[in-house]
Simulated scan of single mutants.
Amino acid sequence: MEMKDKVLSSGHYLFDNKPLIVKPWTRDLEMTKEDVKFVPAWVQIHKLPLKFWGKGLPKIASLLGKFIKCDVATEERTRLGYARVMVELVVDQELPAEIAFKDEKGSVIRVDVEYEWRPVKCKKCQGMGHEMEHYMKGIRENVVKKPVKQFIHMKIEALVSRSVFYLTMIYAFNGIQDRTPLWDHLRRFAGQVDGPWAMAGDFNCVLSTTERVGGNTPNAEIEPFRNCVADCAWSDRFPELYANFLPEGMLDHTPCLISSSTQVQKTRNFKYYNMWGASKDFLPIIKRCWSIVAMRKVVELQKMNGKDPSNVGLISEEFEASKTLRDLSVARDSFLA
């Protein structure tokens, strides 16, 4: 509870300069969009004389919206190209490219304004993040069916080409028995879908023991997932689909690009040269550079984190170790490809 209160009271959160709305979770939480009227945004004020970077800055920023704060570089004046402030903007307001105010002598000062992110609201559906004009450009429209536990089914239609496909987003429960209704529903939906269909998300399960790093996965946990995939005839119906996992960048999750291709993905045979084994450094280099050492470290840190889950240092070490293991796996796959 203390950590939750700290998160909720720590101010505004932004991701990719876009506001992230945080609210407390409850058992009866409704996953519906709220009518957002105000959003925080970072604004750059250019050509602002330095004498206004002090106590007068909040008043100047209030010409755009409610002043929240300025960044450290502005406070300490280590970046003089522009003053950077966070203000609370009204979603529907016109955002001026220039603001003007009078100084102590009555002279009019004009400064340029640059928004690092602009709130966009559609006049047609009142949704955030897109404009009404996008509907005329063939942007795909998501028709979301009634959400239920563990998954959401979507029918996605391109408004110009009228092509349709289905997408099921999964967030499965942790328990084996708790996931049984999910597998049953996917089987039923497989018999009803009449077009291309993709599933993505977190199944909280694997199809093979080799897919999980650390710990053993019993067959009793794997078989229901395997049977579901087989019953849905997934491989038979969509053999041309494949997933490409992209670099995670600054995130702790990996983006997944689902593509279709009529070409069979071929892998070249691995060739081993006997001269490699003649070198005394061969095995030490392999062990050091590829997954054996890295995987052991990840498993060890996972066990330590399980015993002390609040240890920030261990969490950071596990993150770095997992990243190293992923990098080595990418290098290995690239070599074998």
Rank of each mutant, 00 (worst) to 15 (best):
A294Q: 06
I152V: 06
I60P: 13
S291R: 03
P309L: 11
E300C: 14
Y242I: 04
Y272T: 14
R179K: 11
G313H: 12
L207C: 09
I315W: 08
K23T: 02
I45N: 11
D333L: 14
I45M: 11
V330I: 15
K102I: 13
Y171L: 07
G277H: 05
F319M: 00
A41W: 07
A61P: 15
V206I: 04
A172Y: 14
L251T: 10
F335A: 15
M304P: 14
W53C: 12
S322D: 06
A100T: 07
Q126M: 11
A100D: 13
F225E: 06
R77H: 09
R296Q: 08
F67M: 07
G306R: 03
D281N: 09
V72R: 08
Y13V: 09
Q126G: 06
H153T: 04
L301G: 08
I170V: 04
K66D: 05
K266E: 05
V43E: 08
C232L: 10
A190R: 11
P284N: 04
V36S: 02
V229C: 01
G138K: 13
K37P: 08
A41F: 01
L241A: 00
F165I: 00
L257K: 02
W53R: 12
K47R: 09
S259Y: 14
P147W: 01
N311D: 14
R179Q: 11
V213S: 04
G54F: 06
V144R: 00
M275P: 09
K323Y: 13
I99A: 15
V90H: 14
F238S: 02
M128A: 06
M169D: 03
F189W: 04
K280Q: 06
L63G: 06
L14F: 15
T254P: 12
M169S: 07
L80Q: 14
V298G: 06
F203Q: 02
